[in-house]
Design a protein around this nucleic acid. Structure first.
Lengths: 150, 150
DNA sequence: TTAAATCCTACCACTTAGGTGGGAATAAGT
DNA sequence: ACTTATTCCCACCTAAGTGGTAGGATTTAA
């Protein structure tokens, strides 16, 4: 498993906020109830999103959260990297490039690097808005005919 | 992290066996020494490969392992799925399709399904032979111009 | 003043990762 | 028959990560 509940719930929260965008702040209790997730657990997750600058928050009564930007300005990649720390599929690929001491002679490294690239490119090409729109073409493919089998 | 040392070492073992193919069986001690990995740990990993039918083995003196098929007949996908159990990037995507009870209404599911597909397609398109050949074009892309940014 | 909300710091049970250790079974060479 | 090299098998272990829960302090609108 590469994306834990932390990343998945973070995305769920972001999508929920994006769907219920308005002038008001949205409380965590509302999100937790709508999405049927533990509010206490979401608390720790939304805190990461907030500290990462993805949200605006307001404390006190009628407080809550809202997106800091519009939905099409968030890629899934950045949301998951913020919450999960890294999306690298293996330990030998770090966020800041290759890290292994055997890298120079490792014949499997190009495979891992290629996998990392494929994942990064896919998730970097999809935004919160695409999810709200249910843009299946973009998410499930079929839009690059000659690469359908890629 | 989606692929643990188990899957990585399994691939390393397969590549090593593919590189040193001959009429003789290759002992685990040789592999462990060449790849500088714990033989005891490799033992448990190669056992999975062997039981999964990917290898032929011989016990006793001069025994060891060899590939059951030729290198171009093994996709990376099947090696990793055998050893890791699954390559699904999230828990809601199982090897036998979708498993979550909220699937019907989940707006993020198409994203996870798409990610799974992208990974599966990439790893299913590369064989042991590609790794031995150092086929960077296939592993690192650039061979599908219009999809370079995909 | 009160109620509703975010914020903060612990804690905790369970599983997985990444191994190690000991020895039995098998087979080739002498 | 013996020795040696090998696979095969099972139990165990430590550290880290996962998926939360608990309790309260702080802030703010009404």
């Amino acid at each position: 498993m590469m994306v834990s509940t932390k990343g998945r719930y973070a995305l769920t929260v972001m999508v929920d906020l994006a769907k219920h965008t308005g002038e008001d702040y949205i409380s965590l209790a509302d999100i937790a109830e709508r999405e049927n997730l533990s509010m206490k657990y979401l608390e720790s997750i939304i805190s990461i999103l907030n500290k990462g600058g993805m949200l605006n928050s307001a404390r006190g009564k009628n407080g809550g959260y809202k997106l800091a930007k519009s939905p099409e300005e968030y890629t899934i990649n950045e949301i998951l990297i913020l919450t999960e720390g890294s999306l690298a599929p293996v330990n030998c690929i770090m966020q800041d490039g290759v890290q292994c001491d055997k890298a120079a002679t490792c014949s499997t490294l190009p495979l891992w690097a290629g996998l990392d690239k494929v994942i990064d490119t896919y998730l970097g090409g999809i935004t919160l808005q695409d999810i709200i729109d249910g843009n299946r073409k973009k998410m499930l493919g079929d839009y690059c005919g000659q690469c359908a089998q890629l």
